[in-house]
Simulated assay, not measured.
Amino acid sequence: MANQATSSSSSPGPQEHRLEGQAGEEDLLTLYGAESGWVEARTHCDHLDALSSDLAHIPTPDTPCYRCQHPSENWLCLCCKEVLCSRFVNKHMLQHYQQTNHCLALSYSDLSIWCFSCDAYLDAQMIQQLRSVHEIAYILKFGEAPPFRAV
């Protein structure tokens, strides 16, 4: 018994080392979502007519949730410009959509744009109506213009 206890603290052999490396890689792939699949943002949305007419003036990305004052994981409603927390905090943006049918929102965490009605992310660089608000949010968050990809 004492021999087994001491042998577990010895260095692993080459075969054991290889297996540990493989298990570690699989754990990393699972951790980073390799099995979850690719999420491709839509390049078209039928709900863009709901956009606010003044998205040139938006609250800053550090604005807390208007309802609970939570400081992060907040979204900007692109219909009325309210800032509300995500479904991972207190679900105020989701509740806002359910109560008002304001379906378009920009995440201040990663600057993605979500359409609740389409149940999909929208490609802000491909959809012309979203480019300017995405660029303004990026400048407010990072202090410089975003690197747009060629479309």
Rank of each mutant, 00 (worst) to 15 (best):
S117P: 12
W75E: 00
R87P: 08
F142L: 01
S109A: 07
L31F: 12
H57S: 13
A41T: 03
G143I: 04
Q4R: 15
G21R: 09
S52K: 10
M93C: 05
V89S: 03
G24W: 14
R18Y: 13
C85T: 01
E82P: 08
D54R: 13
H47K: 09
P147K: 09
H102Q: 01
L76Q: 01
R42W: 14
E82L: 15
H47E: 04
E144Y: 14
G13L: 02
D62K: 07
S8Q: 04
Q4Y: 14
A137H: 00
G33H: 07
A56L: 08
Q99R: 10
A5R: 09
D119Q: 12
R42F: 14
H44E: 03
L78H: 14
Q15T: 14
P71I: 05
N74A: 02
L29F: 06
R131P: 03
E135M: 09
H57V: 13
P71M: 08
K141L: 02
Y108I: 01
G24F: 15
L78F: 11
F116R: 04
R18N: 05
D62Q: 07
H47I: 05
T60E: 08
R18E: 04
V83K: 00
V133K: 06
Q125T: 06
D27S: 15
A50K: 15
F148M: 02
W38F: 13
E35W: 14
W38R: 14
P12F: 12
L104Q: 00
R131L: 06
C68Y: 04
N101T: 08
L28M: 13
P147M: 07
E16R: 12
K81N: 04
A23P: 08
R18Q: 11
R42L: 15
N90C: 08
N74R: 01
Y138E: 07
L51M: 06
H44T: 01
K141G: 02
N3Y: 15
S11P: 05
A34K: 09
V151W: 15
R131W: 10
V89Q: 08
C80G: 04
